[in-house]
Amino acid sequence: MRWIDWFTRWPVLRQLRAGDLDGLGATAATGRSEQLHARTRDADTVKRSVCPYCAVGCGQLVYTREGRITDIEGDPESPISRGRLCPKGAATFQYVTGSQREKHVLYRRPGGTEWEQIPLEQAMEKVAQRVKKTRDETWEDTDINGHVVRRTLGIAHLGGATLDNEENYLIKKLFTALGIVQVENQARI
């Protein structure tokens, strides 16, 4: 390419010739930029959701095409966030579609140095067995003064801010039924 050809295609020169000093008009466009469009344009469904990152509950719009998420944006109709998302909420799309997201249960055997994939059912069974074993081993019918307590201090729970009121209610019911008294949520800390 000759030097003069490159110079005449230079965007600043196009802007000056067209009087587009801010570079916001057609002079800023390229062949590639003219073919770009929002990922939301090709969506076949849009569902309302709530951001999973904290207890604020910002509204999100989840755009899908053929059952796959194509974009996640703030919901302008949300009375809480009015279409705005913090950096964590704005990154939800990458969180749910990112190639580095772990999609399998990983388990490292006691004393092991490597992680191995195990089925979800096996992991859930391991958790249930360990909860029962710990509860049985640390169960107290009475405290040191003889007061009836029916509890275990061997298990505690610290919930995350992504849990909603209904989930926290169910967790509290489950743990109370198990005799777990150390139940807290990080939103209070």
Rank of each mutant, 00 (worst) to 15 (best):
residue 60 Q to L: 15
residue 123 A to P: 08
residue 136 D to N: 09
residue 79 P to T: 05
residue 144 I to S: 12
residue 99 S to D: 15
residue 183 V to H: 10
residue 128 A to L: 13
residue 23 G to K: 05
residue 17 R to G: 01
residue 104 H to T: 14
residue 181 V to P: 00
residue 30 T to F: 01
residue 167 E to K: 11
residue 54 C to H: 04
residue 172 K to G: 09
residue 174 L to Y: 10
residue 150 R to S: 11
residue 133 K to P: 00
residue 85 L to H: 00
residue 119 P to W: 06
residue 72 I to T: 06
residue 60 Q to P: 01
residue 135 R to V: 05
residue 159 G to P: 04
residue 32 R to D: 10
residue 163 L to Q: 14
residue 70 T to D: 07
residue 65 R to I: 06
residue 153 L to S: 11
residue 8 T to E: 08
residue 181 V to I: 13
residue 122 Q to V: 15
residue 6 W to G: 10
residue 72 I to C: 04
residue 35 Q to N: 06
residue 55 A to C: 02
residue 53 Y to S: 08
residue 50 V to D: 03
residue 52 P to E: 02
residue 86 C to E: 04
residue 5 D to R: 00
residue 72 I to K: 02
residue 1 M to T: 06
residue 115 W to C: 01
residue 86 C to M: 05
residue 83 G to Q: 12
residue 168 N to C: 07
residue 126 K to G: 07
residue 133 K to L: 14
residue 152 T to I: 09
residue 160 G to L: 02
residue 187 A to R: 15
residue 123 A to R: 13
residue 112 G to W: 09
residue 144 I to C: 06
residue 133 K to W: 03
residue 64 T to W: 00
residue 128 A to R: 15
residue 101 R to Q: 11
residue 37 H to W: 04
residue 101 R to E: 06
residue 186 Q to H: 07
residue 189 I to Y: 05
residue 110 P to K: 14
residue 161 A to F: 05
residue 164 D to V: 14
residue 172 K to D: 11
residue 59 G to H: 07
residue 39 R to Y: 06
residue 156 A to W: 00
residue 112 G to A: 12
residue 56 V to Q: 03
residue 48 R to S: 11
residue 184 E to T: 05
residue 81 S to C: 07
residue 179 G to Y: 06
residue 148 V to H: 12
residue 186 Q to N: 10
residue 84 R to A: 14
residue 31 G to A: 04
residue 69 I to Y: 02
residue 42 D to T: 10
residue 97 T to M: 06
residue 171 I to H: 11
residue 43 A to G: 07
residue 52 P to Q: 03
residue 56 V to N: 04
residue 98 G to M: 10
residue 77 E to G: 08
residue 15 Q to D: 05
residue 183 V to K: 07
residue 50 V to C: 02
residue 6 W to A: 13
residue 29 A to R: 13
residue 26 A to Q: 13
residue 102 E to A: 12
residue 66 E to N: 09
residue 176 T to V: 11
residue 100 Q to W: 12
residue 153 L to Y: 03
residue 4 I to W: 08
residue 27 T to I: 05
residue 55 A to M: 01
residue 119 P to E: 15
residue 50 V to I: 14
residue 73 E to M: 07
residue 69 I to K: 06
residue 38 A to S: 15
residue 109 R to G: 01
residue 66 E to H: 08
residue 101 R to L: 12
residue 9 R to N: 11
residue 14 R to P: 00
residue 155 I to R: 03
residue 126 K to W: 13
residue 150 R to F: 03
residue 27 T to Y: 01
residue 186 Q to M: 04
residue 105 V to A: 11
residue 108 R to T: 08
residue 107 Y to L: 10
residue 138 T to G: 03
residue 85 L to F: 01
residue 99 S to R: 15
residue 38 A to L: 14
residue 55 A to H: 03
residue 151 R to I: 07
residue 98 G to W: 11
residue 55 A to V: 00
residue 125 E to K: 15
residue 115 W to I: 04
residue 8 T to M: 10
residue 78 S to H: 02
residue 60 Q to E: 15
residue 6 W to V: 08
residue 92 T to S: 12
residue 110 P to D: 14
